[in-house]
Computed example of a mutant assay.
Amino acid sequence: MPSELPLVQAPMAGGPSTPALTAAVADAGGYGFVAAGYLSAEGLREAIATTRTLTGAPFGVNLFVPSPPGDPGDVARYAAALQPEVKRLGVALGEPRWEDDAYDAKLDVVELARVHLVSFTFGCPTPQIIERLHRAGLQVAVTVTSALEAQLAADAGTDLLTVQGTEAGGHQGSFADLAANHRPLLSLLAQIRETTDVPMIGTGGVMTGRDAAAVLGAGAIAVQLGTALLCTPQAGTSALHRQALLDGRYTDTILTRAYSGRFARGLVNRFALEHDGQAPPAYPEVHHLTRPLRAAAAQAGDASVPNLWAGTGWRQLTTGPAATIIRRIAADARQADV
C-alpha cells in the first residue's frame, strides 16, 4: 500500500464515508477509500473530484459487484411480515426492485479517473474486468470471506485480498450470502495464507493497536478500520447512529438480513430482533423494500428501526478526529509488537 502506516479506512457506503474522512485518513499516513455504493455514476465522479481537492495522496474506490436477483415470492412474504411496521410508522414499503448499482457506469468512472486502487465487494469481478483495470494502471482488491473465495479472486488476477472476518460491522462481503461464510478474522487469515500468496488486508473488529498488531502478526500487510472511525467528526454517520453507538442502549451486535437481504452486522435494536430470520437472501430488493421504514424512523428519532451498523468492538469507540485515531492505533500497534 502506498501509505506510511499499514492502516486502511474501510469504505462505508450509505453515509459514513465522506471525502473529508478519506482525506483525513490519507493525510494522517493511512490509506483512504471512497465508497461508491448507492451513489450514481455522476455522484461517484463528484466524490472522487472532491476528495482530490482535499488530499494529494492516492486513494481507492470500492464498488459493489451485482448480486443475482432474489425470489419474488420470498420478497413478497417478507413484505407481508413487515405490515405491522408499515402501520406503526405510517409509510408505505418501497418497491423491491433489483438493480446493479450502476456497475458498468462506475467502472467507466474509476477507469477514466485513474484512481489508484479499485476494491470489490459482494463478489469477484471477471478476469476481463481486472485485466481492463490493470491496463489502465489501476490495482484491484477483492473482498473475501473464505479460502475458496480467496482462491477464486487470486485466479481472476486480483492484486490484493481484503480478508473480512465475521466481526466486521456492516455488510459481509461474501460472494454467496451464506451463514457458512461467517468466520473469525484471525483464523480466516491463517487459512488463506496457506492457500495463496496474494497480499492480504485484514478487516473485522479492529479497534485498538493490539487488535491491529494481531492482524498484522497473522500475515496481513495492512489493517482496515471501519467502526473505529464511525464517530469521528469527518464521518457522515447520522446523529441517531452516533448516539446509539455511544450511549450503550443496545448491548450487542447481530448478523441479520432484515434490512437489506444480505447479512450485515449492526446493533441489536427492536427491528433486528423481531425480523431476523424473516428476510430472504434478496439484495438489493429488501434494501429498497425497507428503506422508507428506516428513513421514517430515523426522521422521527426512533433508533429501534434503522440499521445501526457496528462491528463487534464497537464498545471501544472514541469520538476524536480521524487523524488522531489512526495515529494512536498505529503507535499502539508498534508498541504491542515490541
Results as ranks from 00 to 15, higher is better:
208 T>H: 05
137 G>D: 11
21 L>Y: 03
119 S>C: 09
317 L>Y: 05
261 G>D: 07
321 P>V: 06
71 D>F: 05
209 G>S: 07
273 L>F: 14
282 A>Y: 11
49 A>E: 13
22 T>N: 14
46 E>L: 06
285 E>M: 13
159 D>R: 02
151 Q>K: 15
334 R>M: 07
259 Y>F: 15
267 L>D: 03
238 S>C: 09
75 V>D: 06
27 D>A: 11
15 G>H: 07
78 Y>D: 00
75 V>G: 10
269 N>E: 13
39 L>T: 13
112 L>T: 12
301 G>V: 13
175 F>Y: 12
134 H>F: 08
132 R>T: 01
241 H>L: 11
101 D>W: 15
321 P>G: 12
191 Q>S: 13
237 T>C: 13
16 P>Y: 15
194 E>I: 01
306 P>E: 00
338 V>T: 14
258 A>W: 07
223 V>K: 08
34 V>Q: 06
64 F>N: 08
306 P>C: 01
259 Y>Q: 04
268 V>L: 14
272 A>T: 05
304 S>Q: 15
217 G>K: 09
223 V>Q: 12
67 S>P: 03
182 H>F: 06
110 V>I: 10
109 V>Y: 05
133 L>I: 14
172 Q>T: 07
36 A>L: 01
57 A>F: 09
166 T>E: 12
202 G>I: 01
193 R>L: 08
225 L>T: 00
301 G>N: 09
5 L>K: 14
145 T>Q: 13
216 L>I: 01
245 L>K: 03
328 R>H: 10
